[in-house]
Amino acid sequence: MNTEAVKLAHLLLEGDADASFAFLCDLREQGWPSVDIYQRIVSGAMQHIGELWEQDHISVADEHLATATCDFMISRYHAQTKQKKLGHKAMFLCVAEEQHTLGMRMASLLFEENGWKTKMMGANLPLEHAVSAAQKWQPDVICLSVTILYHVPVLKMYAETLESLPFHPKIMVGSRLLSMYDLSPYCTPNTLFMTDYKKLIGWMNDQSEGKASGAS
């Protein structure tokens, strides 16, 4: 774990909203792009917090405080970034029971920074709600996030149902599990898999250059 991520983890665990925000601003001033800040620093900090919990150094209550502080920090950070407007639409949701939202939150902020319109449907979204929201808003891409291994089986139903909507949205799945497991049996052949934000940015750049979007 890089030292910046560990430093940020401690600020988040203290619930220090101002210092953690200032920490990100400093990195940006040093020339860090958002994608690296989100991937290496913020994700890294949250992972470190997970390790501290595994080692019994912190409690779930600490984790909650850190998450709330993190959420607030990235909102403030994002409000200061420049956003170009293009008009593609992306919708975000966690599958049923899934409460881990930070990964897709930061993905949505990167989408916005790259000119996309976004709709955040949040944690634990029942498939019916996802379907009706998608039909109303007609996004180009629907992003699903899953963190807990036991929530993977429902993924298939989500991917298949949403992909077969009449306006043919692209289905994207982001998950920490992708680095350990092959989730393709739980998705559709056209599903895009995003292990990290660098890959996401690469894909978005391809999109805006009008290249084919099939490869995952």
């Binding site: 779930v60 909650h64 709330a68 959420d71 607030f72 403030r76 409000a79």
Partner: peptide, 28 residues
């Protein structure tokens, strides 16, 4: 079981904080 009420309170604080932040951004 760890108290879920705490989580609810946490979530409410977060929503509140978020709303304040959004109001702040809009004002800006």
């Amino acid at each position: 079981e760890l108290d879920r009420k705490l989580a609810r309170l946490e979530q409410m604080v977060r929503q509140q904080q978020q709303r304040l932040a959004e109001a702040d951004f809009q004002l800006m």
